[in-house]
Design a protein around this nucleic acid. Structure first.
Lengths: 145, 145
DNA sequence: AAAAATACAGAATAATATTCTTCGAATAGG
DNA sequence: CCTATTCGAAGAATATTATTCTGTATTTTT
């Protein structure tokens, strides 16, 4: 999986605009459309480009509240970890979830309509997962990036 | 900015695959291509769809280490906040940055090649920003979502 | 040095996006 | 209660883009 400088340029262009067309990418990297096309297909094939997505304004779809939630487990046996992780994967409110090494065990980002819905989420979803220990919520006031 | 059920379907489809073409979207939502096209353009125009991006496998581009970094400021005067925020915006290693209300002031996600590069980032980039207080790093071991 | 593989360009074709015109249904105004 | 207007959609026509195919120069392998 060797990427040369041109591949990296392509990646940067498609990160900025996932719908930039071949001709335009070709122009910017200084190649004709064919090798450009083939390079992009290769990047997709070998898994460097994992897909494309539309960036949605979450407030427009009624997800006004974003919360970073730090979770610790009570038990660190394999079973507890597996149960917790598969429960998290099923929750649509959770947009990202990382298993981390540090002060806590998991970092979750949660997106919900408002505080009331978040409270309901905590009480009726998160708190019901077995083995769960401490939960610490940080409410996003603004997104710099 | 009123979204009906069809708009929400479109949003979900384009989130799964930002390059899904009009014809296919139209087929899935049960409309012909023209109104589908016009709805998508409208969603882009009014800012519900903010853009499109390629999803890149970060390990493929040599960013093997992901860190969630919690930062507190020493001073919470407006000036300190502004200086910190504009410094953060300039750092390419920082992929996301949130100003939060909670135990700390900022949550950053950092992507770098390895621990050595991270240490260098902490010492030579982050620690040099004026007004910075506590920094707490959590290293991502696995990504559930 | 010959053979094979690689990377690219340009042309041809296939598929898709975009625009334009038209139609029918719902709604507001007279 | 009828007519004008708006709205949402369909279908055809056109423009643009993606994809494939063919040929050539360059590099690598044997």
């Amino acid at each position: 999986m060797v990427l040369d400088a041109i591949d990296k340029q392509i990646i940067n262009l498609l990160r900025e605009n996932g719908k930039m067309n071949n001709k335009e990418v070709a122009g910017k990297i200084g190649l004709s459309v064919t090798p450009t096309f083939e390079r992009i297909k290769r990047l997709e094939r070998i898994g460097v480009i994992q897909g494309y997505t539309a960036l949605i304004n979450r407030k427009a779809i009624g997800r006004d509240l974003k919360v970073i939630c730090q979770v610790s487990l009570k038990s660190h046996e394999k079973e507890g970890i597996d149960v917790f992780e598969s429960a998290i994967r099923e929750l649509p409110e959770v947009s990202h979830a990382y298993h981390v090494a540090g002060a806590t065990d998991y970092m979750l980002t949660i997106e919900v309509a408002n505080m009331e819905v978040y409270q309901d989420f905590l009480k009726n979803q998160l708190a019901r997962i077995p083995h769960i220990g401490q939960v610490n919520s940080s409410f996003v006031m603004s997104e710099l990036k």
